[in-house]
Simulated assay, not measured.
Amino acid sequence: MDRVAQLEYCKTCIRREFSPKKGIVCSLTKEQATFAVFCDDFQEDKIESQLLEDKRNRQHNEEVYEDSLGLSKIGIKDGVAAGVIVITLAILWFGIGLLFLNRIFFYPPFLLALGIYTLLKGIKKRKKNRLSDSEILS
């Protein structure tokens, strides 16, 4: 287990202390973690565990919100779907304005560009997640 994984483990232990020179250390040994997989002296700090879980959930929700252009509020959490919706709206707005109002509106091209950007970003994220899943299963 590397130091980052040990720190994640130690952050939720009631026996953690902070040393200005070493960082997070064990209150029993006054040293950094040396365990390989599990610490025999670990006792969970339920409050800290809940705070860390809440923080991870907030970060995930913010990421989904940004990736979907805010459409996650209505249940669309995928960047690809959000991109397709925005592109469709841009084309409809442009077409309706041109055909029925004899106008070319200023916003549809920007909306189209935003939709394409979101679509490509969503495709890239899907590919990345697929690679991560396949690497884990290998």
Rank of each mutant, 00 (worst) to 15 (best):
I87S: 03
C10V: 02
E66G: 08
D45V: 02
L99A: 10
L101P: 03
L7H: 09
Y65D: 15
R126H: 15
E31G: 00
L120P: 04
P108R: 05
F105K: 03
L101G: 00
M1C: 06
I47D: 05
K77W: 08
K55Q: 13
D54N: 08
G75H: 03
E44P: 01
V37M: 04
S138W: 09
E53Q: 15
L69I: 09
I24K: 07
D40Y: 07
R3D: 11
A81R: 03
P109C: 12
I76M: 06
I91D: 01
L89A: 12
P20M: 14
L52Y: 06
K121E: 06
L92A: 14
E66A: 15
S138F: 12
E17W: 07
H60D: 13
R3K: 12
R15K: 15
C39V: 08
R58V: 07
T34I: 05
G97A: 05
G95S: 15
N102K: 15
E8Y: 09
E62W: 10
I136L: 10
S132Y: 05
V84A: 10
I74C: 03
K22T: 00
G79L: 05
G70C: 10
I87P: 04
K127T: 07
E44M: 08
L120M: 10
W93I: 02
G115S: 05
A113Q: 13
K121A: 11
Y107H: 05
L101A: 12
L69V: 07
E44V: 11
T12Q: 09
L131E: 06
F42H: 10
L131A: 08
F100W: 08
N102C: 07
V84H: 10
A82K: 13
K30G: 01
K125Q: 15
V86I: 14
V37T: 11
I87F: 08
T34D: 07
D45Q: 00
V4E: 15
